[in-house]
Design a binder for these strands. Structure first.
Lengths: 187, 187
DNA sequence: GACGGTTTAGGACAATTGTCCTAGAATCTG
DNA sequence: CAGATTCTAGGACAATTGTCCTAAACCGTC
């Protein structure tokens, strides 16, 4: 476990399991067996299961913010940065075809559970939305930058959803090529 | 309940609840309270909960097949028929923003549960895929008809997923307009 | 009205769930 | 070393889950 605190280990394991099995499906027992702590020990670190979910979302928000910031540094041109966004579909294609998009599937599950952390989870989308919009604005699309950002976000969501349902890697590659062409023709 | 059999009532209620709350979340008790039968009575009609799921999927497959057949009759031109497909996003926009796409969310949940009926559920997608492909073939796109079918399917999935996550009706309308333009420019 | 198959109600079952409690171990502080 | 604080283990708790069982109600047929 290294030098990470028990709390961090719980959040890390929960993050992974929530993605792979879903939030509700993941029990305290299954997290405990991964982290190797007793079931009763959770309640020293978290008051409830919902609180673990909040911590997981918070972690994901931080990670995503950092990632987007990093992309901002690496990509010289806005087009390069948007291409970097599209690239995550390729990079994560194995996990996507198996578990779908971590953001999309979590939001979908929480919506069905009518869970209170729903709006927090959707902030993950907002992060990408705002970031993409910024890039499109820099490309001169002031009036419809948000439309374009949402469009690209939806496209990637659709790719993830279908690739997961049909368990197809090839489809991801097809669509990514399509998206790249779209982007290059648009700017 | 009319003259429908108890079995039909169970499947109907389960269908609705599976969509609104998810498969795992929906308990026998909650179905029972809708159909107004005792919990123990289920096992006369179904051997297990999985069997109810199978029946629900089977029903959805039948309904979808009928609907696609109907569209085939109503739409004179293949383009009209594809537009009819896009139109479901508008027709079901209220439910979509609240619960997502019934096909997409079910497949996503079953994938996470690693459920045996996963492939059955994804047949729902295949139904649309085959139907759309057929329309594109009739439009003369022989070599990439399947690519186009999958593309449109993914677009609609993405719209549903995002509209659900951000609870936005307006976004659906935006994207539908976009999809219609795409279709008209393509053919 | 008596019979036999179909359908139903309601409770029992073990397992699992999230939650809570308490006693003890570990760690830090003086 | 003594004491206080932080952390942990493990069991108890009620509630809920899917499943199963049995007896009674229903219903058409003789």
């Amino acid at each position: 476990m290294g030098d990470k605190t028990t709390r961090d280990c719980i959040v890390e394991a929960a993050d992974k399991l929530f993605y792979q099995q879903g939030y509700e499906r993941t029990s305290f027992a299954s997290i405990a067996s991964v982290v190797q702590i007793s079931r009763g020990n959770f309640y020293y670190h978290f008051k409830s299961k919902d609180e673990i979910l909040d911590a997981v979302i918070e972690t994901r928000l931080c990670t995503t913010r950092r990632m987007l910031q990093q992309w901002e540094v690496e990509g010289k041109h806005p087009v390069d940065r948007i291409h970097r966004f599209i690239q995550i579909l390729i990079d994560n294609r194995l996990k996507i075809k198996q578990y779908g998009c971590p953001v999309g599937t979590l939001c979908s599950e929480l919506a069905k559970l009518d869970h209170g952390s729903q709006s927090q989870a959707s902030q993950l989308f907002t992060l990408f939305r705002t970031w993409l919009r910024k890039q499109f604005v820099q490309l001169g699309h002031k009036s419809n930058a948000d439309i374009l950002a949402m469009h690209l976000l939806a496209r990637s969501q659709g790719v993830a959803a279908l690739a997961n349902a049909l368990y197809s890697e090839k489809f991801i590659k097809n669509e990514v090529k399509y998206m790249r062409d779209w982007l290059n023709n648009y700017v």
